[in-house]
């Protein structure tokens, strides 16, 4: 890294921790690097620095550029982006599901992660039954908690 703050290896570790803890990865990573270099003050400053630009950009868009959003051409752009986004999300979701269930997939060997397959089936059944009984969609937070518990038991 250009500042030489942390080594490549530490960075990889930080990224892995940021990915496996809740919250936006960028924020986690900033807090982690800030905290390891400058204690609580470093953590606060690094986090604030990563959040502030995004905060003001959105504020700017909803206050000053509000009228630009109603513009026909901007609307057309946004609708186009939305269409792409739905595709991207689906692709990401599917590739994650496949990667979880088939961690190794090559021409020579295919290994199936039976536990992940089981968890997937249990989660799908769980949300399906919930929807049948309660007539509404299960809360994603409930599903995350269930998945976490299943993971600790089954793996």
């Amino acid at each position: 890294m250009s500042y030489g703050w942390i080594s490549e290896e530490t960075f990889t570790y930080f990224v892995a921790v940021s990915e496996s803890t809740p919250g936006p990865i960028m924020v986690n990573l900033a807090t982690y690097v800030g905290s390891s270099k400058g204690g609580i003050l470093g953590a606060l400053l690094a986090t604030a620095a990563v959040v502030t630009p995004a905060f003001f950009i959105i504020l700017l868009i909803v206050t000053i550029l509000k009228r630009a959003l109603d513009n026909l051409h901007v609307q057309a752009c946004l609708n186009g982006i939305k269409a792409c986004m739905v595709g991207i999300i689906l692709a990401m979701g599917l590739s994650m599901v496949i990667e979880n269930i088939l961690p190794q997939m090559s021409a020579e060997e295919i290994s199936v992660d039976v536990t992940a397959l089981m968890i997937t089936i249990i989660l799908l059944l769980n949300s399906w039954i919930y929807k049948k009984r309660q007539k509404k969609v299960i809360s994603p937070i409930m599903l995350i908690l269930t998945a976490g518990v299943l993971g600790t038991i089954l793996y």
């Binding site: 496996s20 739905v86 595709g87 999300i89 689906l90 990401m92 979701g93 599917l94 994650m96 599901v97 990667e99 979880n100 536990t115 992940a116 968890i119 997937t120 989660l123 799908l124 994603p140 599903l143 995350i144 269930t146 998945a147 976490g148 518990v149 299943l150 993971g151 600790t152 089954l154 793996y155």
Partner: peptide, 19 residues
Amino acid sequence: AKAFKGIKVAVGIFDCWLS
């Protein structure tokens, strides 16, 4: 580590559901 492996499965399902 185990809980996270389970949660990763759920996250994939969310993404599909959302789309």
